[in-house]
């Protein structure tokens, strides 16, 4: 089956939600990937929409870059609403 392409599968579980990665399938082309994904990941009404993407086309961040990429956000507490203390009289804001 290695002659077939590996596709990553994303399922939208219901209208209004985003597609979420669920796993992968092998297929000869993208139409077959959709059919295989339907059989494999939505046998019990788990979804209303499917995306398939050839795995080779996905660019992922590397675990080594975790700190340079994500650590700078950690000390920027002023980006969160809860950082700002307001008097009670203001009410809900």
């Amino acid at each position: 089956m290695s002659v077939w392409t590996l596709y990553e599968v994303f399922v939208r579980s219901k209208h209004g939600l985003n597609h979420k990665h669920v796993g992968s399938v092998h297929a000869a082309d993208s139409a077959m990937a959709i059919e295989n994904a339907r059989e494999l990941y939505t046998r019990r009404s788990e979804g209303v929409s499917l995306w398939v993407v050839p795995s080779a086309l996905i660019t992922a961040s590397s675990p080594d870059e975790k700190d340079p990429l994500f650590a700078p956000a950690d000390d920027k507490v002023y980006r969160h609403a809860s950082f700002y203390e307001l008097p009670e009289e203001v009410g809900h804001m």
């Binding site: 089956m1 002659v3 077939w4 000869a28 082309d29 077959m32």
Partner: peptide, 9 residues
């Protein structure tokens, strides 16, 4: 079947 699917694709 697998070969035919690849040829078709």
């Amino acid at each position: 079947v697998r070969e035919a699917a690849v040829a078709y694709a």
